[in-house]
Design a protein around this nucleic acid. Structure first.
Lengths: 128, 128
DNA sequence: AGTTGTCAACGAAGGGGTTCGTATTTTGTC
DNA sequence: GACAAAATACGAACCCCTTCGTTGACAACT
């Protein structure tokens, strides 16, 4: 069976972002990283990460005094989860609508457009 | 200046969906529509819509006894708002990542892929 | 006129997320 | 060993969202 795939809250997502980019990390390391974006207490991050353990969003190694955390689900899986949620709730399940809206929204570079194009071609080629 | 553009919650979004598709509606009409999807009390919808008035998500005509509501912001603006939010929080602002993830996620029909393709071409053509 | 039905308004309660202060335990230093 | 620093654990508080029961006003019907 596939993973449970839990939809993280905003605060949890901020922590996951740090874990994805840093890999194995302590609470202090995550806190230091988050401080670069906004002010928040150390225990706030700690509490959040403890809850995330219970939810299964992260795992931790408790063998040493300072616990070491890591994300339990990958960045791509989580992105898919959040995207699917938004897709159903705001786009009636139409991926096309979502993609077009996303493209019209932001100024993408030519390079990016080309990469999307390439991916589209790949998808089409795969079809029978 | 552009509209404030408020990010609706899940419950609010469900109501907005009804208002977008129905146009001017009473609380009862919205409630009846939502009942098709899931069970919920009339006053629950009423309360939500009252709060949405305060937030500016909907407007209402109170001239008659049964108030008549309508969405204050368009569907597309709201989609953009939600999409931008997700873009920043889960995709580091990269529209390309988001689009690719969305495409890889869902089985889009050939027709849809073609439409996306056409939109891509349009975007490219607009570039200098 | 009285009863029944519909509606808006209000308040309260519960759950989840976020924040942080405090207490406790462990580690390291003098 | 005493003291300071660092980490975890715990619990409380707050806010937002959601849900609904109750109340009071208005309307319609008999």
């Amino acid at each position: 069976m596939p993973q449970p795939l839990i939809r993280p809250s905003d605060g949890e997502l901020a922590i996951l972002r740090v874990l994805w980019s840093r890999g194995l990390s302590t609470v202090r390391e995550v806190h230091d990283e988050l401080l670069k974006e906004r002010e928040m207490g150390y225990t706030t991050v700690l509490k959040l990460m403890q809850i995330m353990v219970e939810k299964g969003l992260v795992t931790r190694d408790e063998s040493s005094r300072t616990h070491i955390y890591q994300a339990a689900q990958g960045e791509e899986s989580t992105q898919s989860c959040l995207l699917n949620d938004l897709l159903q709730k705001a786009f009636e399940g139409s991926a096309k609508s979502l993609v077009v809206r996303a493209l019209s929204n932001t100024k993408s570079s030519d390079t990016e457009l080309d990469e999307i194009q390439a991916y589209l071609d790949l998808l089409k080629a795969r079809k029978p």
